[in-house]
């Protein structure tokens, strides 16, 4: 990908309002990876660890899987409201990671709640790599 496109993606992720746009999961991952710095390579294994670890910051949602479930190809369920949440795995849900602004917004909210802080660009790239696995 051209550097200009990467910059545009990062800008969209950071500053974008909620506009629907057609982006590709691998591009959104690449934008976070670029932000993480030279020499960084995303790891699905590290992404799995972040996603499945019980961080224990929130009693209601100790882990990401509390709402998204452990079978990532199946729908999850919001831990408080019981509302169904569409599958997180890209192979099961082609809508995943197709709107950089949306992705950035939910990383911000969910990392704060579950991990107790915002996730780094590296962690976000790892999680996307994990959720893209098998697609």
């Amino acid at each position: 990908m051209k550097p200009a496109a990467i910059v545009a993606l990062i800008a969209a992720a950071l500053f974008g309002a909620t506009t629907a746009s057609a982006e590709a999961p691998q591009d959104i991952q690449a934008a976070y990876a670029a932000q993480a710095g030279a020499g960084f390579t995303a790891s699905a294994q590290r992404g799995r660890t972040l996603f499945t670890t019980r961080h224990g910051v929130s009693a209601d949602f100790p882990a990401c899987t509390q709402c998204h479930g452990t079978d990532l190809a199946a729908a999850g369920k919001h831990a408080i409201t019981s509302k169904q949440i569409e599958p997180m795995a890209v192979r099961a849900n082609p809508q995943r990671f197709t709107d950089a602004a949306k992705t950035e917004k939910w990383f911000r909210r969910n990392c704060r709640e579950v991990v107790g802080r915002e996730c780094s660009a590296a962690e976000k790239a790892d999680v996307i790599a994990f959720l893209r696995a098998g697609s």
Binding site: A17, T18, D60, I80, R108, R109, R112, E113
Partner: peptide, 12 residues
Amino acid sequence: HFGSDASLAPAD
């Protein structure tokens, strides 16, 4: 927001 983070861009 009732135990959740539902923060939004100010314009939205």
